[in-house]
């Protein structure tokens, strides 16, 4: 009986993954912020790339 109860309790207790990370749904805020940072870094790199291309063409 005791074991049976314990099993039921373990089933009800959510997995750590589910409990901590997704309950609030706020993980999307982190995803959004990472996306913004990554987009800005990419734009910076693309512009730097274009500037260097310009310099390369000027030298020829």
């Amino acid at each position: 009986m005791k074991n049976y109860l314990l099993n039921i309790m373990l089933d009800v207790v959510p997995q750590p993954t589910e409990s901590l990370f997704r309950t609030s749904g706020k993980i999307f805020v982190v995803v959004g912020i990472l996306t913004i940072i990554f987009t800005l870094i990419t734009i910076y790199l693309v512009r730097l790339d274009a500037k260097i291309s310009k310099l390369e063409n000027k030298g020829k």
């Binding site: 997995q15 993954t17 982190v30 995803v31 996306t35």
Partner: peptide, 19 residues
């Protein structure tokens, strides 16, 4: 990687590594 890597469901037996 940045978006789906954070959202993908995880295996449940990774021990202390967890998330």
């Amino acid at each position: 990687t940045l978006i789906y890597g954070l959202l993908i469901p995880l295996p449940t037996d990774v021990g202390i590594l967890d998330e």
